[in-house]
C-alpha cells in the first residue's frame, strides 16, 4: 500500500511541522510520498525529502498552483491518485478546502480530522466538538484523509528521499487569487507553539487583549482566543481555538477570562498543562485545568508577566 501526502506549502515554503506530523500519522499505512505543489515548490520538496519516514517526494510547479486554490490542486492530486491507496494531508484550512473536493472527484467519502489510525481502513475522529470519538471503517477503495495534527508528534529529520518532478495538466480556471492578508507576527504559529496564551470574553475589548499579548510575548508564546472573544470582535478569527477554529496541544496552555465552553475545550484539552485564570470560581474551565487561579485576569495576568 502507498500513501500520497499533500505537503503544506505556502509561497514556495514547506510548513515542516504540519507536514511532519501528518507523516507520523500516515507512516503505518504504507510508503509515504509527499507531494509539494506551488508556483515554485522545489525548495519545499527538498525540505520534505529530509523528513524521516518519507519514501519519495513529488514536486509539481505551475503558476496555477501558486495560491493554494482548491480546483487546480484537487485536479493535480486526482491525476496522481491511481498509484495510491491513501491520499492524506494535515488538517489545515488549505487541506480542508482541497481534500473533500479530491474525495468527491474520486467518488469516495473524505475522512476529516482523523485523530487516530486503527488499521488501514479504520480511523478515529472527534465528532460533536470533541464530545465523542467515533471509530469509522471505510468501505471505499481509496481513503482520502485529513489528520488532526495536534494529536501526532512531528517526524524528525534525517530522511533523504528521492525527489521527482511531475507534470501539471491544464485545468479550467474557475477561481483566481486576489490577495492574501497575512497577519504579520513575530509570534510562533498557533498550532505548533510550545506555549499558548488565550483570552476569552472576560478580556472585555480588543484594546484589553494587549494584556494577553504581553504575557504571550514574555513567554515566546502564540496568542489564542475563544469563539466568544472572536465573535465579540476582541480578536481576529485566525486566533480562534476550538471546534470551529484551531485545535492546539501545546506544552502549556494559559486560559484567561475563558469560561470553558464545550466548543473551546474541544480545541485545547489535549494540551499537556492547562492553567485557568478566571474570577468566576464556577467556570467549567477549572474542571480541565491542572492549575486554577480564581482572580481578576487584569490583576493576575500582568503580575504573571512581570514575575516570569
Amino acid at each position: 500500500m502507498a500513501v500520497l501526502l499533500l505537503g503544506e506549502v505556502n509561497n514556495g515554503e514547506l510548513s515542516v511541522d504540519a507536514t511532519a506530523k501528518a507523516v507520523t500519522a500516515a507512516k503505518s499505512l504504507g510508503d509515504v510520498t509527499v507531494l509539494c505543489a506551488g508556483a515554485s515548490a522545489a525548495a519545499a520538496g527538498e525540505a520534505a525529502a529530509k523528513i524521516d519516514g518519507v519514501a519519495k517526494v513529488l514536486v509539481a510547479e505551475d503558476a496555477s498552483l501558486s495560491h493554494r486554490l482548491a480546483e487546480p490542486t484537487a485536479a493535480l492530486i486526482v491525476s496522481l491518485a491511481g498509484d495510491y491507496s491513501h491520499i492524506v494531508a494535515p488538517a489545515t484550512t488549505d487541506a480542508k478546502n482541497v481534500m473533500p473536493r479530491v474525495a468527491a472527484l474520486l467518488d469516495v467519502m473524505v475522512i476529516s480530522d482523523v485523530s487516530g489510525v486503527v488499521d488501514a481502513d479504520t480511523f478515529e475522529r472527534p465528532i460533536y466538538a470533541g464530545n465523542a470519538i467515533q471509530t469509522v471503517k471505510s468501505k471505499d477503495s481509496k481513503k482520502v484523509i485529513t489528520f488532526r495534527t495536534s494529536t501526532f508528534d512531528a517526524a524528525g529529520e534525517g530522511g533523504s528521499a528521492a525527489v521527482e518532478t511531475v507534470s501539471v495538466s491544464d485545468a479550467p480556471s474557475l477561481s483566481s487569487w486576489i490577495e492574501d492578508k497575512v497577519a504579520e507576527s513575530d509570534r510562533p504559529e498557533l498550532t505548533s507553539a510550545k506555549i499558548v496564551v488565550s483570552g476569552g470574553r472576560g478580556v472585555g475589548s480588543e484594546e484589553d487583549f494587549k494584556v494577553i499579548e504581553a504575557l504571550a510575548d514574555k513567554l515566546g508564546a502564540a496568542v489564542g482566543a475563544s469563539r466568544a472573544a472572536v465573535d465579540s470582535g476582541f480578536a481576529p478569527n485566525d486566533w480562534q481555538v476550538g471546534q470551529t477554529g484551531k485545535v492546539v496541544a501545546p506544552e502549556l496552555y494559559i486560559a484567561a477570562g475563558i469560561s470553558g465552553a464545550i466548543q473551546h475545550l474541544a480545541g485545547m484539552k489535549d494540551s499537556k498543562i492547562i492553567v485557568a485564570i478566571n474570577k468566576d470560581e464556577e467556570a467549567p474551565i477549572f474542571q480541565v485545568a491542572d492549575f486554577g487561579l480564581v482572580a481578576d485576569l487584569f490583576d493576575a495576568v500582568p503580575e504573571l508577566t512581570s514575575k516570569l
Partner: peptide
C-alpha cells in the same frame, strides 16, 4: 474573502 490559517485570503470565483 476567506478565513485561512494565518489570516485572510481574497479570491474571485466565477
Amino acid at each position: 474573502t476567506r478565513e485561512v490559517d494565518g489570516g485572510l485570503q481574497t479570491i474571485e470565483v466565477k
